[in-house]
Amino acid sequence: MSQQPHMIGGLPPEAQPQLYLDGVSRAFDGFKAINNLSLVIERGELRAVIGPNGAGKTTMMDIITGKTRPDTGQVLWEQSVDLTMLDEADTAQLGIGRKFQKPTVFENHTVEDNLALALKGDRSPFAALFYRAAAKEAARIDELLGIIRLGDLRRRIAGSLSHGQKQWLEIGMLLAQDPQLLLVDEPAAGMTDAETMLTADLLKSIAGARSVIVVEHDMDFVRALDCKVTVLHQGSVLAEGRLDAVSAMPEVIEVYLGR
């Protein structure tokens, strides 16, 4: 478990990673959810993270977003900010957006309000108390409604949306935050095939300007993303590379197909 099959040590000097995890471990009651994990995400990179249940994908995202503190290891944002010292609100304000596996939107607010609340801006209570909507923001909301194709439903209460619509709304909220890095947990769950492909296209189009980490089970979806894949197993990186290369590795096959 201690081998490090990738290039942390030999990082090229000109590389400017957006996110840098080195030797990160986290145990829960003796169970090592993350074990000496190292991961580098380049600026603008699209990365898929796969792995069986319990591989540590969710804990990894918890650590990046400051929800969980690692026991040991380093988590650096843009080579300077130590993410282990921050909490969820800090990392969000820093530019890390997260989408949950189970779509989580504000069910008692309208679609429009959901997006408005997610828009980048001053998050302090007093700013919120005296907030007045600006024209620029209204335009941005219109734009986002177009992207997630919920324009007709803008005044609907989010709680009444279908599962797929909630997924889209949450993606829209993520975009509204204008993050530098998007952590996307199983975005395709509950979507039709056509919607799945649309989502893949959307994520691909986002990458480049921003970095995106997608955690996914659906191999067709990962294939459609057409990007570098990291395989997690028992809290560490088992393999990294193109999907075809990775899926040919015997150790990956063993993990996925059982002993």
């Binding site: 969820e88 939107v105 504000f106 008692n108 609340l117 998050r123 935050q177």
Partner: peptide, 19 residues
């Protein structure tokens, strides 16, 4: 509105950057 957000989905509200 933020109050209602954190009442219904506290964790989500944090991940949007609200303290």
């Amino acid at each position: 509105k933020v109050l209602v957000c954190l009442r219904d989905a506290e964790s989500r509200t944090r991940f949007l950057g609200y303290r």
